[in-house]
């Protein structure tokens, strides 16, 4: 189980995360929702170890991250929000680099990379540098890189952006099977439909604080509000009609 306790991050005087607590249990996909600037990416960066939290702790299966950060990172796979890749490399070269940095044995790494490229429909483009890849192809490379070392926890930051329908369906099925094997997924997204289809629980973040935590299965019930309604309510989103009208007035004025 991944457990965050009192996770806090300050950038100078700005409080990006304020005593955030959540858990990702084995066998579950936890949805992590929030408007822009709510602290989602800060949380994700702290969980994967790219930034140090100002206060609070993270532990994986009861072992605090700070006791052995290298072992902690070894058990995590990460797909960032933007496909930041070394686009002058081919997908093969990039995945081999990732595997080697994770010290995977050369022989099994080579065959695993080849298989992943085939299965993720990247084999035909294996000689091309990723500069010529579409966003969806880059997302697939990132997912392959995150799964390469068979991690216990997958941290996904908007992994479906740019994917076509087929690849989206494949990813969803893959994630379901992945957690069925008693693994964990932290799924940060803006998309309510994805959370409703994939996640067992959802945590909603606003202005650096957790404002709601829900069991997604109960949302299908007719008496309970939809996830979107809950989101709008807890994050205090206003009615957007006047704003939309103003925008149209600006573009329609001569």
């Amino acid at each position: 189980m991944l457990e965050a306790r009192g996770l806090t991050k300050r950038y100078g005087g700005f409080l990006a995360l304020d005593r955030v607590d959540f858990q990702v249990r084995r066998g579950e996909i936890l949805g992590y929702l929030g408007p822009n600037g709510s602290g989602k990416s800060t949380t994700v960066n702290a969980v994967v170890g790219l930034i140090d939290p100002s206060a609070g702790s993270l532990s994986l299966d009861g072992k605090p991250m700070l006791d052995d950060p290298v072992e902690y990172k070894r058990r995590i796979g990460y797909v960032p929000e933007e496909p930041h890749l070394y686009t002058h490399l081919t997908a093969t070269e990039y995945l081999m680099l990732v595997g080697r940095l994770r010290e995977l044995p050369e022989q099994s790494l080579a065959s695993r990379v080849a298989e992943l490229l085939r299965l993720l429909l990247l084999w035909d483009s294996r000689y091309s540098t990723m500069a010529s890849y579409s966003k969806g192809m880059r997302q697939r490379v990132l997912l392959a890189g995150a799964l390469l070392h068979n991690p216990d926890l997958l941290v996904l930051d908007e992994p479906f952006s740019g994917l076509d329908v087929t690849a989206g369906l494949l990813f969803r099925t893959l994630l379901r099977l992945y957690v069925a094997d008693n693994r964990m997924v932290l799924f940060s997204t803006h998309r309510f439909d994805m959370v409703e289809q994939l996640c067992s629980r959802v945590v909603i973040l606003s202005a650096g604080r957790i404002v709601a935590e829900h069991d997604v299965s109960s949302l299908g019930d007719r008496q309970s509000p939809s996830l979107e309604e809950i989101f709008v309510r807890v994050t205090r989103q206003s009615d957007f009609t006047p704003l939309a009208r103003q925008i149209l007035e600006v573009v329609q004025s001569s």
Partner: peptide, 23 residues
């Protein structure tokens, strides 16, 4: 492009990270 099996013997002593960064 997948690996370096042909050069494996000559570079058996180098670590995977060293190989990755070299490439």
């Amino acid at each position: 492009p997948i690996g370096s099996s042909r050069r494996k013997d000559s570079s058996a002593s180098e670590s995977q990270a060293c190989r990755g960064v070299s490439r």
